[in-house]
Design a binder for these strands. Structure first.
Lengths: 249, 249
DNA sequence: CCGAAACTTTGATCTCGATCAAGGCGCAAC
DNA sequence: GTTGCGCCTTGATCGAGATCAAAGTTTCGG
């Protein structure tokens, strides 16, 4: 079970960097916040731009401030699988590892709050609370990855689409603190191709299954990138989990 | 890249517990070994026995000494996906988490070296080196899980089987320190059903693809549970990775 | 406004792996 | 021995999703 995302009010100085809250600040002392402040900078990437290639030296450590980034790997013949979706407040980078393990690509325009890598690692080493927090986050990501393995290995195309919608709806609702009135409204921050790469499908199948869910009344397409879910429980039912619809780290 | 498993010679007192080496001892002081010694016990499970159910309170923390255990999740209608394979020297359990996240099942008779959970966690909290080691291990598992996502989402049945064979061959070779003479010989510690659950296939497809690889000369079946690989590179080629064939944590 | 490019949808057909079905093998109990 | 039970293999058929193909929609620069 994901702990509820921590919203910004706790430390006023975090207002400009949502990330530090969820990813780093949760268990750390105000003193560490100041130290993190000193080594951070912002960078914006255009949609489609590659932020880091697998195998490169690790210099991307930070978090997503806005937009969507993806982690993926591509086989020699071009088949691609996305292995992680990085939404605002998600942490990027593997602390204390020399190289990037998967390609990091901007799915939309993305702004990232970056920490100077060597200094960040030095700070981590010196701060047990930070290290503990990183372990905690990594365990969350591991659980999410394993939930996704169940989806990739055993769910039908329709269940895959419903699961993805449920995750995005939940994330969006958390971010906007929106209550469920005439249904949840959220945006699809991914192209059909990106969804296909995430779900282990083709774009045609993604499109067809979205149409099918629309026809069944489970979702309503405001336009091709905005979805309304009148009955979230019905959506979860389509997703096939008995549990809570899966989580992104 | 997996670091070479640490073999036993480093501390003589570890001789009876291979686990502590790979999972815990690598970075810790001899003093911590003594403390771990004090809270460990062994337990053996029969093949097929469930070691822990998802959702149960976490009291299984330790490592596999011999045999094979699996992590899996099952959908309401019975579809099952294995999300982790726990071979000798692999760590079991999520430090400092209240509940088990996936079913832990013995695939063969399994002996586990268990640590008293509360005391283990206390020791972790008090020992930054241990905590760092756990973070490191968790990152390895995360990478392995994501590699597996690529397999589940995008590889063909034949590539899946070849990938699994490559992983098992590598693990076995590492354990036995065996050199490649007339090929690598290793045992399949899994039933066809377990392989199917791991690869997102059915048992019939697993059986057929193993037969196909046999017919193609990529593998030689000594019997249904023992495989010889005359040319490991040819096997990797069938597995479809450009990289190193994938790793189990 | 037009035109081009990127993205999306829909249709027709094909194929890989699932499903259904039968039989073989190894082993333990009787 | 025979019976029964797990486990594995092989064959025949089916179907979900891939592939091939075409057309509709949105966006953006001119």
């Amino acid at each position: 079970m994901l702990q509820a995302p921590l919203i910004l009010q706790e430390h006023s100085r975090c207002a400009d960097c949502p990330i530090r809250h969820r990813a780093v600040c949760a268990y750390c002392e105000p003193a560490e916040l100041v130290k993190l402040d000193a080594i951070k900078s912002y960078k914006t990437y255009k949609a489609g731009e590659t932020i880091a290639w697998a195998g490169e030296p690790m210099d991307v450590i930070g978090s997503v401030v806005s937009g969507v980034a993806t982690l993926s790997r591509t086989l020699a013949d071009g088949r691609r699988q996305m292995v992680g979706l990085l939404l605002p407040s998600d942490f990027i980078g593997r602390p204390c590892r020399p190289a990037v393990a998967f390609d990091v690509v901007a799915a939309s325009d993305v702004t990232i709050c970056r920490f100077n890598a060597p200094e960040f690692e030095k700070l981590v080493r010196a701060t047990p609370a930070l290290e503990r927090r990183l372990l905690d986050m990594t365990l969350d990501e591991l659980d999410a990855a394993r939930d996704w393995m169940l989806l990739l290995g055993r769910k039908t195309a329709r269940e895959k689409i419903a699961s993805l919608m449920a995750i995005l709806a939940r994330r969006d609702a958390n971010l906007t603190q929106q209550t469920v009135a005439d249904g949840i409204l959220f945006s699809l921050p991914l192209t059909r191709e990106a969804m296909a790469d995430y779900l282990g499908l083709t774009i045609e199948t993604v499109s067809r299954q979205i149409s099918a869910l629309k026809k069944a009344g489970i979702i309503i397409l405001e336009d091709s990138r905005h979805v309304r879910v009148p009955d979230f429980v019905a959506l979860l039912d389509e997703a096939g989990d008995d549990s809570d619809g899966g989580m992104v780290s």
